[in-house]
Amino acid sequence: MASWVGDSIFDNQFELTIEVPFPSQREVSIALQSLSPDHEPRTGGTIKSLSASANALSVKWNAVKARSLRVSVSSFLDHLALVMETMDTFGQPDLQ
């Protein structure tokens, strides 16, 4: 999935896209809105964009350095796991 595009090793650009399936539009929307508000640190040179389809969240990264891409992806997956666990634990209709 990761592709390397660029003219020289001094101008490399990494791009990565992942798709996260969810049971319904509701969960996709909640995950999107929980994970979107915070921006990447400006210094890293990494751009992350989130979008939603009917039953999947898709995340796309553009990064200058593989290292900062790894850091961003890794923390995103941690955050995603926390949001999903929160939905599992506190999103059941019987709690309402």
Binding site: I30, S34, L35, D38, H79, T86, M87
Partner: peptide, 13 residues
């Protein structure tokens, strides 16, 4: 951020 993520998620749920 860890805490804000849970707060945002439950607010929506």
């Amino acid at each position: 951020l860890t805490v804000a993520l849970v707060a945002r998620t439950v607010a929506q749920l």
